[in-house]
């Protein structure tokens, strides 16, 4: 089972399930991280955390820990 945190830079993935604590999960949903959406990992901070993602043509950075709760669809 792969999560957003497992993406390599410039790799794409399609969101399957959005997990995490309610308040932050809700916030991510509102930023466009909804199931079925394609997400690209754009940057990794020099110290390995946080990560910058592109979702619906917008960029947002979150920490690895939170990204691990966003699960990707299995690629066929």
């Amino acid at each position: 089972m792969r999560t957003l945190a497992d993406l390599r830079v410039t790799e794409r993935g399609r969101l399957a399930t959005i997990g995490g604590e309610r308040a932050f999960r809700r916030r991510l949903l509102e930023l466009g991280f909804v199931p079925g959406t394609e997400v690209v990992l754009r940057k990794v901070a020099p110290l390995g955390d946080p990560l910058e993602f592109e979702v619906r043509h917008c960029r947002i950075s979150i920490r690895r820990k939170e990204a691990q709760a966003l699960i990707l669809e299995e690629t066929p």
Partner: peptide
Amino acid sequence: GRREPLLLEL
């Protein structure tokens, strides 16, 4: 306070 995860825009 509530632990607030990071949300950042570059």
